[in-house]
């Protein structure tokens, strides 16, 4: 693909870094591969509030990105839901061209999740990965106090933790990269802090093939 858009839907504050790590690491890998890439947060979702839905964007292109100043990804080819309950009630499929990929962090199967997806006929595949389990993730709310204090992150100005994908972002990045080939495995893997979860995820993806786009 000459131009790809990836949109990540996540929860404010508690999963903010996870969402940001996905777009930042994939954009950085693409740049390392010599492509043009941009990662950014949705400007009007920020400053985020705890649990409020927030979006993060990544754009990858073989040529210079001319819509760099456009606020939102209008036609996401790949959508990631960092938290499974977002599958209902949000219009995350809006603008997706046929042949898209949806990745969900969930313990459920694609069979079960598909019923909640609006306009699933645009999907070439639905990918479910139990990222929380693979990352040996403590129940998020135990960490709420710590994460709630990390307001520094809300504008992307500064990170308290410099590690990329130490937590549930790692399996999600593995799922995106393995099922879409958006960047090469060997360029992204060295960036990932939680290598165990990244590698485990590669073997534990639940992929449901749907409607491929015929060339």
């Amino acid at each position: 693909m000459a131009y790809t858009e990836l949109t990540v839907w996540t929860r404010g504050i508690i999963m903010d870094k996870e969402g940001r790590d996905i777009v930042n690491s994939i954009a950085a890998s693409a740049r390392n591969e010599g492509k043009f890439a941009q990662a950014m947060e949705n400007y009007v979702d920020n400053p985020d509030r705890t649990n409020a839905p927030t979006r993060k964007y990544c754009r990858i292109s073989d040529s210079e990105i001319e819509n760099a100043l456009t606020y939102e990804n209008e036609n996401p080819n790949i959508v990631v839901l960092v938290e499974q309950t977002m599958v209902k009630g949000w219009d995350y499929m809006r603008g997706m061209p046929p042949g898209g990929t949806l990745v969900i962090n969930t313990q459920y199967t694609p069979d079960y999740m598909l019923r909640f997806v609006p306009k699933p006929e645009r999907l070439a595949q639905l990918v479910c990965v139990d990222a929380a389990k693979l990352a040996d993730h403590k129940w998020l709310y135990y960490r709420l106090g710590e994460l709630g204090l990390d307001r520094l992150s809300t504008e992307g100005a500064a990170e308290r933790s410099k590690a990329i994908a130490p937590d549930i972002a790692a399996p999600l990045i593995a799922a995106v990269v393995k099922t879409t080939g958006i960047v090469k495995m060997e360029t992204i893997e060295p960036m990932i802090a939680n290598k165990a979860a990244f590698k485990a995820a590669l073997k534990e993806l639940h992929i449901m093939p749907l409607n491929p786009v015929t060339a």
Binding site: Y43, N46, P47, L152, E155, G156, A157, A158
Partner: peptide
């Protein structure tokens, strides 16, 4: 005040 806030956050850090 947004969007300047990110500058003061980065400086604070």
């Amino acid at each position: 005040i947004r969007p300047y806030t990110a500058t003061m956050m980065a400086l604070a850090q």
